[in-house]
Design a protein around this nucleic acid. Sequence first.
RNA 1: GGUUCCGUCGUCUAGUGGUCCAGGACGUCUGGUUCUCAUCCAGAAAAUCGCGGGUUCGACUCCCGCCGGAAUCACCA
Length: 482
Amino acid sequence: MEKAITRFAPSPTGYIHLGNVRSAIYPYLLAKQTGGTFILRIEDTDQARFVEGATDLIKETLLWLGLNWDEGPDVGGPHAPYFQTERKELYLSWAKRLIAEGRAYADPTPPEKIDEYRKADEAEKVPYLYRNHRPLDTPEWQEGMPIRFKTIPKNYEWHDEVMGDLKSSPEVLDDIILIKKDGLPTYNFAHIVDDAEMGVTHVIRGQEYLSSMPNYLALYEALNLPRPKFVSLPHILAPQGNKKLSKRDGAKSVTEYRDDGILPEAMLNYLACLGWNDGSEQEIYDLKELLEKFSLDRIQNSGARFDETKLLWMNGVWIRKIKDEEGIDVLYAKISPDFWPDSAKNYPEEYRKKVLNIIYDRLKLLSELKTFTSYFFEEPEIDKELILKNKMLKKLSEDDLQKLLSLTSTRLSSLENWTAENIQAALNDLLAETNKKPGELFSLIRLAVSFAPFSPSLDLTLEVLGKERTLARLNLAARSIN
RNA sequence: GGUUCCGUCGUCUAGUGGUCCAGGACGUCUGGUUCUCAUCCAGAAAAUCGCGGGUUCGACUCCCGCCGGAAUCACCA
């Protein structure tokens, strides 16, 4: 396959939300699977919307997902710099060339005049097109003056790798601004120059640029540049309604999901498969498989709704997959200390791993670790109502409950080897001795040692908790009942 | 309003003229696994393939019209 040179070109105006990252994932996959280059370019030409620190956030997000760029900030590359503000002169020289060739002009029209044109057109219900108001005399360009493209209205046809063959009519072509009054280029102009300079082969971006395509096509023509391949990605839709997912609708940043305990593997998997599939029934892909199987022509051409429930499911699958395939140490290493209960820091790593080992298969979110494991690290608050009101235990008298707990404590205390296997055997003996149902005895013990709504199976829970602690809690619970 | 794109279970999707009275996954519901929660397993409900016309022996698949939805129309990207 031909080497693809792709780019992710965000503007540093805030965090990256879910709707945006996919247009980083697909270019990355395409570049990497063809042995090509993935470029990160920062489109910071809008000074007004620039947000301090946004570039770092963008880099952080990509790195978290494992989408390392081959060229761009920090790593450099043959086409540096990768911030558009630092490439200002380049755009200007291309624009000047266009002026020299009669395909662009310096526009002296004051903004108020432009407003008048627009309002007049609106009043007459004709489409507002600046080319209908193109100034007859255009001055020599000087700083502080915008440069406009001098368009030639006509039909365009082009191919989009996702949308297929597309065409447009002349009404969409206009004298778009190339260089703004502040001397910086517009996106419309800058991305074309940069993509050409950087040798980008595939322009992968959101569908919202589709309607500007004819203007870009006109620019490629005027600049005498070859067209790259175009890949328009359908929108990711908000969970409710039919709108594209945006910050205004509360779209969370990617890093927020990380902080909630979504694994990057799950996020990547979910997003890659939202609007793409390889035709098989596979749901779970790691990066390596994605690289093998991804192809542009299987990207969906209609919008896909973001479904957090499925993301959560997938995260659970990934948590289990990592543990089962790579072991508990690998999973443990992926979990930031912040996800553990505060009290966990007083315990050795080995103990936390043991806890994780018996609880991991219940996690959907790493942040659930805090509530799911607290009783392994601190003494649970005794709540005898939890025992008395339990539906399995309701019919037992307080006296019975207390005796059962005491007996359990006694029997377990004589256990030599505190292993899950031995504990289970002792528990089974106890079942026979007391003639109770597992539902009764086990529920009681579980509650007495954890006071939690649920826990891993009893033998494992007690094993990890340790003999001393188990007995202490059993005795304490027994005393508290009367 | 102009322009452009899109339209299969609630959601993500398979499906490129017969093998589809439409398959998988999430979610939901039911049952099973010595106790809870989860996992896992088995099963169920869930799509008149947006609507109406064609073409064809035969259409979810091709064509036309309509309807619905979305995007975009900035010296923002």
